[in-house]
Design a protein around this nucleic acid. Structure first.
Length: 781
DNA sequence: ACGTCGCCATTTTTT
DNA sequence: ATGGCGACGT
């Protein structure tokens, strides 16, 4: 029965068997971390720990579900069911609901998503009469998020001259006032944003020692996965909870910390040993996931980072294929190449599309990939981006449900009060807002008690408002007697939410109706599932589930194999046999926003590390020379990261030979003329008269960088001639042939523009430095 | 109060 | 390129 210990390697096993005290597991990519975590919990249970006493915080709810399942397989599902497992946000939302009254919140508090918070911030800025150019709501919100993640309350902010000074200097003197208004408004609306779920938990644990004590006692064993991505607020919660028993086990990999932008503090993991001096440290350094080429390539990359914990990832796996790098002319061609490659690999290697993933830095990149996959008839699914729950028709229905649960939910109310159109317009809403402020009541309270206010609203409008209030109230009553699905169904019918859409008949409208239907079905499933597990199946629970659902939490029924498309961030924790990382270009990856400070650049590098280490068998990298961005065609330079991988693990793929345009570059200006080339080819001759500037600019030459002058001429000319940019340029590692010297390999490139020189090691005559302007070099591969 | 037009930002990543 | 939002006109 204890055979679950058998398959573990020594450090894994040691970690599993370490039950008590503070411990940290540094788990490299693909080192069997999940196994260790699940077995460790199973081990605790086997050794008499009560399942109610274990709290395990995971990065996604899906991860929690899967782990529960696997633990259940070892110790029995009924036992596993009692474990507290989930994301920080969902676990503490649950706790906050049961303790809400202590904080002055209704237990049915709403969770504001980012759209809600942006809308709220917009109205606040508008109401305060501030300029929205000066006070960008997104920027303000991210500042507030910073405050909250560091437990800087409004009061703390006001007592902190440095912060105030900083905001004043940043031309945001009203920051404090906005912050206060924002917090007040959320509170009045009975709403918490994502950060509040953590901040308020901290508040709860600090202000109510008996509550803290209760949960300390309940959670005698605390585990935190992906610890490198926790922020300060989460850190404090964990610390507080584990303070009594000190049975705290954190798991993570500093090399995979990629969420600093949302407040994650890598020091949490770097300093864990300082926080708990008697900590036991376990290092899982053997990678079981990837080929040694992939592991070594990733190692050679991450070595470039300065801030790292000491560890060495190794593998006993086969060498495997080298990392393959492909360059293409355009993002469109990049897509086609990826689609073709997947198609061929699937065919030749007898793989299903499930085995493939396409990873990118930004969601916007998915489009080119989608187009190509669709044309090729390859099934795919996209994770992230605009989720199901963010569609307008879904948000509308959800907003109704939210108002039923919590009529003070201002954002939801504003969304539905005039949808479908009821003749309640902006003017009326403004008056209501003023009244709400004046009487210190919520909008809904004003609406349901208009007669008791001195608000000046026309008779007909009053009737409309009354009708609305009555509608909501009667739905509320009905909600008490029915389950979530029935309520939602009733809302759809009585409100006539999809009536217009059904009449409409356009494909778009039809799909919206289907989406609403799908949501209703989803609710049915939700109720059944929750009931099976003796869990809360109320409407409140459903809404919470929706608010905190991550992209992976919606299980889709369709099990046809599909290629997975997602951002690298979303790919963390996943693995695929074949991985394509696309858009390896400066400005895109690393993002232009991240190249200014070392720490940001290091985070980008870790992100690339995460991407590489998703691959089990084969990893492809690609970049394009031009790409549509902001609706414009722009030139791109290959990512600096491409050069940071040790060349031993890299293979440059030749552009496709059957493409005429692809060949042209070889014989174009950069490499001089070649006689056997048809005369109609495009010439990218370096203009002879060149401003000296280019040549003067001393530039650290990198193998991938395009000569300045060439880059200038290329796109427009090519466009005019109806062709795309030349794709092929010389890179380190290329095999080339020279008329006189024969075949050789490029060791190094240096110089700019006309002066670009290649150091080539020829098989027959040894190493030569050649001025490319005059040399006839043909790239072989 | 509602609809249309045109302008604007958006593209870094997400619970 | 596209979608959201505000200004303007009906």
């Amino acid at each position: 029965m204890s055979d679950y210990l058998e398959g573990l390697n020594p450090p894994q096993r040691a970690a599993v068997e370490q039950m008590e005290g503070p411990m940290i597991i540094i788990a490299g990519a693909g080192s069997g971390k999940t196994r260790v975590l699940t077995y460790r919990i199973a081990h605790l249970l086997k050794n008499g720990v009560d399942s109610f006493q274990i709290l395990s915080l995971t990065f996604t709810n899906k991860a929690a579900r899967e782990m529960k399942e696997r633990i259940g397989a070892v110790v029995g599902q009924s036992e596993a069911k009692n474990l507290w497992m989930g994301t920080f946000h969902s676990v503490f939302a649950r706790i906050l609901r049961s303790e809400a009254d202590k904080l002055g919140y209704p237990s049915s508090f709403t969770i504001y998503d980012s759209q809600d918070t942006v809308r709220l911030m917009n109205s606040i800025i508008k109401e305060m009469g501030l300029s929205k150019e000066q006070y960008k709501s997104k920027a303000i919100l991210s500042r507030i998020s910073q405050f909250k993640n560091n437990l800087i309350t409004v009061k703390a902010y006001r007592n902190n001259p440095e912060l105030i000074e900083a905001d004043t200097m940043a031309m945001r003197p009203q920051m404090g006032a906005i912050y206060k208004e924002y917090v007040d408004r959320c509170f009045k609306a009975g709403a918490m944003d994502f950060d509040d779920l953590l901040l308020r938990t901290n508040e709860l644990l600090v202000r109510f020692p008996d509550v803290l004590s209760k949960y300390q006692d309940r959670f005698r064993y605390v585990m935190v996965d992906e610890y490198q991505d926790t922020n300060h607020s989460q850190y404090l919660i964990v610390r507080a909870l584990a303070d009594r028993f000190q049975n705290i086990c954190v798991v993570g990999d500093d090399s995979q910390s990629i969420y600093a932008f949302r407040g994650a503090n890598i020091n949490n993991i770097l300093n864990f040993q300082k926080d708990y001096p008697d900590v036991k440290t376990f290092k899982l350094e053997q990678n079981y996931r990837s080929t040694s080429n992939i592991v070594e390539a990733a190692n050679s990359l991450i070595e470039k980072n300065k801030t790292r914990l000491d560890k060495t990832i190794f593998t006993a796996n086969d060498e495997g294929g080298k990392i393959k790098i492909m360059r293409t002319l355009s993002d469109g061609e990049e897509g086609r190449w990826v689609a073709n490659s997947i198609f061929e690999n699937a065919m030749n290697l007898q793989k299903t599309y499930d085995d493939f993933a396409i990873l990118y830095r930004t969601n916007a990149q998915s489009r080119a990939m989608e187009d190509a996959l669709r044309k090729k008839g390859i099934k795919y699914k996209i994770f992230g981006g605009l989720s199901f729950y963010q569609r307008k028709e879904i948000k509308d229905l959800l907003a109704y449900l939210r108002v039923l649960i919590n009529p003070n939910d201002e954002e939801a109310l504003k969304r539905i009060i005039n949808y479908p159109a009821r003749g309640i317009g902006e003017t009326t809403m403004d008056k209501l807002a003023v009244a709400a402020n004046h009487y210190n009541k919520s909008l809904f309270e004003i609406i349901s008690n208009i007669e008791k206010t001195d608000i000046k609203i026309q008779g007909p409008t009053k009737t409309k408002l009354n009708n609305f209030a009555t509608l909501i109230q009667s739905l509320q009553i009905s909600a008490q007697a029915h389950n979530a699905f029935e309520v939602a169904d009733e809302v759809v019918k009585r409100v006539g939410l999809i009536k217009d859409l059904q009449v409409d008949g356009t494909p778009e409208a039809v799909s919206r109706v289907e989406n609403v239907q799908e949501l209703l079905n989803g609710m049915k499933d939700f109720i059944e599932e929750r009931k099976e597990q003796d869990l809360d199946s109320s409407l409140t629970a459903f809404l919470e589930d929706v608010a905190l659902a991550s992209t992976f939490d919606n299980k889709d029924e369709d099990d046809t194999p599909m290629v997975s498309l997602m951002t690298i961030h979303l790919a963390k924790g996943l693995e695929f046999p074949y991985v394509y990382i696309v858009g390896m270009e400066e400005t895109l990856f690393p993002s232009a926003m991240s190249v200014n400070t070392r720490s940001e650049l290091e985070e980008e590098r870790r992100l690339f590390y995460v991407a590489l280490t998703r691959a089990e068998t084969q990893c492809y990298l690609s970049f394009a020379h031009t790409r549509y961005r902001w609706g414009k065609l722009i030139d791109c330079e290959p990512s600096r990261f491409l050069e940071e991988i040790d060349e031993r693990y890299i293979e440059h793929l030749a552009p496709q030979r059957n493409k005429v345009v692809a060949n042209r570059f070889v014989d174009s200006g950069l490499f001089g003329d070649d006689d056997d080339i048809p005369k109609d080819r495009i010439r990218f001759r370096k203009p002879v008269t060149r401003s000296v500037r280019n040549q003067e600019t001393p530039e650290k030459k990198t193998p991938f960088k395009q000569p300045q002058n060439l880059k200038k001429v290329t796109p427009k000319l090519a466009q005019q001639l109806g062709a795309s940019k030349p794709t092929q340029k010389l890179a380190v590692g290329n095999k080339v042939s020279h008329a006189k010297f024969g075949v050789g390999q490029v060791l190094q490139l240096e110089g700019v523009g006309v002066n670009i020189k290649a150091e080539v090691k020829f098989e027959s005559v040894g190493t030569k430095k050649i001025l490319l302007q005059f040399a006839k070099l043909n790239i072989l591969e």
